[in-house]
Amino acid sequence: MASSEWQKSSYSGATDNCVEVRTVDGLVEVRESDDADIVVRTTASNFARLLQTAKAGEFDHHAN
């Protein structure tokens, strides 16, 4: 099984509460560091679309 190490965002700083991402067998896995047992798995193309959507601000109304 080809996999990478969990990577957290550089915006997380030293805090333990962050989103982490890694690849496993061609899929992308995402988890929250404070609840590491729950992992969301998706394709690389779906993950790229999620990032594009987030960068475009389409989820900003959920942050308030």
Results as ranks from 00 to 15, higher is better:
A2N: 14
A2I: 15
A2M: 15
S3T: 15
S4P: 03
S4E: 13
E5L: 14
E5I: 12
E5P: 07
W6F: 08
W6Q: 11
W6N: 05
W6A: 06
Q7E: 12
Q7H: 15
Q7P: 00
K8L: 02
K8I: 05
K8Y: 03
K8V: 07
K8P: 00
S10W: 03
S10N: 09
S10E: 04
Y11E: 04
Y11V: 02
Y11N: 02
S12I: 05
S12E: 01
S12G: 01
S12W: 01
G13E: 07
G13I: 09
A14E: 12
A14P: 10
A14G: 14
T15Q: 08
D16L: 13
D16Y: 12
D16I: 14
N17T: 08
V19A: 02
V19W: 04
E20S: 03
E20C: 03
E20G: 02
R22C: 09
R22M: 08
R22F: 04
T23A: 07
T23I: 08
V24C: 11
V24Y: 12
V24F: 04
D25A: 10
D25E: 12
D25F: 03
D25S: 10
G26D: 04
L27P: 02
L27F: 11
L27S: 13
L27E: 13
L27D: 10
V28Y: 00
V28E: 00
V28A: 01
V28C: 05
E29V: 08
V30M: 09
V30Y: 00
R31S: 00
R31D: 02
R31I: 02
E32V: 03
E32K: 09
E32C: 07
E32M: 07
S33C: 08
S33R: 04
S33Q: 06
D34V: 09
D34N: 06
D34G: 02
D35I: 08
D35E: 12
D35W: 10
A36Y: 07
A36E: 08
A36C: 03
D37R: 13
D37E: 15
I38S: 11
I38R: 14
V39I: 14
V40R: 07
V40H: 11
R41S: 13
T42R: 01
T42L: 06
T42F: 00
T43D: 04
T43C: 01
T43L: 03
A44P: 08
A44G: 03
S45Q: 12
S45R: 10
S45I: 06
N46A: 09
N46V: 05
N46G: 07
F47R: 00
F47E: 02
F47A: 02
F47H: 04
A48N: 12
A48E: 09
R49I: 08
L50H: 06
L50N: 07
L50M: 13
L51A: 04
L51M: 12
L51V: 10
Q52R: 11
Q52K: 11
T53S: 13
A54R: 11
A54F: 09
K55A: 06
A56L: 05
A56M: 07
A56F: 07
A56I: 08
G57R: 01
G57P: 01
E58R: 13
E58I: 09
E58F: 12
F59W: 10
F59D: 03
F59I: 15
D60R: 13
D60L: 06
D60M: 10
D60I: 05
H61A: 11
H61N: 08
H62N: 14
A63F: 13
A63H: 14
A63E: 11
A63Q: 14
A63R: 15
N64M: 13
N64S: 14
